[in-house]
Design a protein around this nucleic acid. Structure first.
Lengths: 102, 102
DNA sequence: TTACTTGGTTACTTTATGTAAGTAATTATA
DNA sequence: TATAATTACTTACATAAAGTAACCAAGTAA
């Protein structure tokens, strides 16, 4: 009866429309970053950031690398799959510049 | 210290990362639709759809037109500002086709 | 009069998110 | 030696958002 939405598109939307996910990806587009940098960069709580990074890692969008320095350094970065989200971010940027007031 | 995120981009993200918002806009890209069509089309609850449509109307993204027929018909459609979101949806579609499994 | 339809709203439950404190590991400082 | 500092979390609890189901008003139609 109703033409249904493509499940892959729906899944992409489910990922991207989680609160903070977009901003985390946007933040990581400027390069690998550690937990506390992302946290203070976008104003997310540690509890939720931890949860989101795990989700994004499970989706294969984010990589997590541990450097056993002192104190330990853990770097989060975008995988190829994650970097491929850049055009979406660029379009959101374009739209916001054209249609939102300062 | 940390280069902060552009407030317009952040606002766009706040709008788009609300649950259901993306799917509602995607649904309306195929043309004006009434409440119950959107509702069954994306599987959102009436309570939240009502809330979202009000938000999107306030943002100037969605237009609401009442046709006093019987029973009343109310059509929701995308404004110019709303239609301008299409490139974002296309990019999400592209990404989902390239990177998500069926 | 009762029933049907649309586009909602209301009350209540469940889930998600925010807040603040706590933890483990490792080193630096008093 | 005890205390403190740092990072990357986790835990417990409070609040906000979303899901569910019942209800409502307006306007017919049977």
């Amino acid at each position: 009866m109703d033409k249904s939405i493509c499940p892959r598109f729906e899944k992409a939307m489910t990922i991207l429309s989680q609160r903070w996910t977009g901003l985390i990806i946007y933040q990581l587009l400027s390069g690998p970053q550690r937990f506390c940098t992302i946290e203070s960069g976008i104003g997310i709580s540690g509890r939720v950031l931890s949860e989101r990074l795990k989700d994004l890692e499970n989706e294969g969008i984010v990589n997590r690398i541990v450097y056993p320095e002192t104190p330990v350094r853990i770097e989060y970065s975008l995988s190829e799959k994650g970097k491929a989200l850049e055009p979406i971010m660029k379009e959101i940027e374009n739209w916001s510049q054209s249609w939102l007031e300062r």
